[in-house]
Simulated assay, not measured.
Amino acid sequence: MLNNLKDYQLILASQSPRRHQMLKELGLNFTIKTKEVDEIYPKDLEADQIPIYLSELKAAAFEAELGEKEIVITADTIVCIDDWILGKPAGRAEAIKMLKALSNRSHQVISGVCILSKTKKVSFATTTQVHFKDLSDEEINYYIENYQPYDKAGAYGIQEWIGFIGIDGIEGSYFNVVGLPIQRLYQELSIF
């Protein structure tokens, strides 16, 4: 569908199966290639700048080796409640702490994306407001035991059981909460 990219090789630099599936659903041909990057950001960044910074950091790891007809796509997602940035939980105790903090509250899910070629770079962030109902300890424990959400920012996946029973409203892109603002990515790729 994106005829402007038909001569390009797209590289998705992500291990996320959810991002793989969304890009596949766009009908794009791409390869998956990842590099280890220390996901450390300056502490003075505003919340909406953190995922952009991290996605650009991931893209920079490919910069020297990109061919003339290659485009790399990187992304990073954070969850923000008040001034607390929630990344992926280190273990069960941290996952419980995060979900208790999100319970009966609204928070922001912010995804940053970087699209990089030899000659061009486009970066953007998309924010979605998410509201959880009051989650019981039993619900939190059931979710963590059965879904082990240690690979997800904020310790939850909207597309999983806890999203079904616990999220009572969102403002903005659902797919952004899954981990990739796919509509905005499509829009940016169509003019890249």
Score class of each variant (00 low, 15 high):
residue 12 L to P: 06
residue 83 D to W: 11
residue 106 S to E: 13
residue 43 K to A: 00
residue 123 S to H: 08
residue 103 S to G: 05
residue 115 I to A: 10
residue 112 G to E: 13
residue 113 V to W: 02
residue 23 L to K: 01
residue 102 L to V: 00
residue 77 T to G: 11
residue 85 I to G: 02
residue 77 T to M: 13
residue 149 P to F: 06
residue 129 Q to I: 12
residue 165 I to Y: 13
residue 67 G to M: 11
residue 107 H to P: 00
residue 92 R to G: 01
residue 180 L to Q: 04
residue 161 W to V: 07
residue 174 Y to V: 01
residue 55 S to I: 14
residue 12 L to Y: 07
residue 80 C to G: 04
residue 73 I to K: 08
residue 133 K to L: 09
residue 138 E to I: 11
residue 29 N to M: 04
residue 62 F to W: 15
residue 60 A to G: 03
residue 35 K to W: 01
residue 79 V to D: 04
residue 34 T to D: 01
residue 161 W to T: 05
residue 75 A to W: 11
residue 170 I to M: 14
residue 84 W to V: 08
residue 153 A to Q: 02
residue 188 E to S: 07
residue 174 Y to L: 07
residue 153 A to M: 03
residue 70 E to T: 06
residue 50 I to D: 09
residue 111 S to E: 05
residue 59 A to T: 12
residue 20 H to L: 05
residue 186 Y to W: 12
residue 114 C to L: 06
residue 87 G to R: 11
residue 31 T to A: 03
residue 64 A to H: 13
residue 175 F to G: 01
residue 178 V to Q: 11
residue 117 S to W: 14
residue 91 G to K: 13
residue 104 N to H: 10
residue 16 S to F: 09
residue 165 I to V: 14
residue 112 G to R: 14
residue 140 I to R: 12
residue 143 Y to H: 01
residue 94 E to W: 13
residue 170 I to K: 11
residue 25 E to H: 09
residue 132 F to A: 05
residue 181 P to E: 03
residue 82 D to W: 05
residue 99 L to C: 07
residue 161 W to F: 12
residue 80 C to P: 09
residue 125 A to K: 12
residue 83 D to I: 07
residue 29 N to K: 15
residue 95 A to D: 05
residue 162 I to V: 10
residue 78 I to K: 13
residue 17 P to Y: 05
residue 129 Q to M: 13
residue 108 Q to I: 09
residue 92 R to P: 03
residue 2 L to A: 07
residue 104 N to R: 10
residue 105 R to A: 08
residue 81 I to N: 03
residue 158 I to E: 06
residue 86 L to T: 15
residue 12 L to K: 06
residue 81 I to P: 03
residue 164 F to I: 10
residue 111 S to P: 07
residue 87 G to A: 02
residue 75 A to H: 08
residue 105 R to P: 07
residue 143 Y to V: 00
residue 189 L to N: 03
residue 99 L to E: 06
residue 184 R to H: 05
residue 76 D to A: 03
residue 188 E to L: 09
residue 115 I to Q: 12
residue 152 K to M: 02
residue 129 Q to C: 08
residue 155 A to H: 14
residue 187 Q to R: 12
residue 51 P to T: 07
residue 179 G to E: 02
residue 65 E to G: 04
residue 82 D to K: 13
residue 120 K to F: 03
residue 122 V to R: 14
residue 33 K to C: 01
residue 100 K to S: 02
residue 14 S to A: 05
residue 61 A to S: 15
residue 43 K to T: 01
residue 147 Y to L: 00
residue 1 M to N: 14
residue 165 I to D: 05
residue 3 N to E: 07
residue 54 L to S: 02
residue 98 M to Y: 15
residue 135 L to M: 11
residue 110 I to Q: 14
residue 156 Y to E: 00
residue 26 L to W: 12
residue 70 E to N: 06
residue 105 R to W: 14
residue 49 Q to T: 00
residue 13 A to Q: 05
residue 158 I to G: 04
residue 99 L to F: 07
residue 40 I to W: 01
residue 43 K to W: 00
residue 155 A to C: 12
residue 95 A to E: 07
residue 28 L to Q: 02
residue 191 I to A: 12
residue 101 A to F: 03
residue 62 F to K: 15
residue 153 A to D: 01
residue 22 M to P: 03
residue 54 L to W: 05
residue 182 I to F: 02
residue 10 L to G: 02
residue 123 S to P: 07
residue 23 L to Q: 00
residue 104 N to W: 04
residue 6 K to S: 08
residue 67 G to K: 15
residue 139 E to K: 11
residue 47 A to K: 06
residue 27 G to T: 09
residue 154 G to Y: 04
residue 175 F to R: 10
residue 187 Q to M: 04
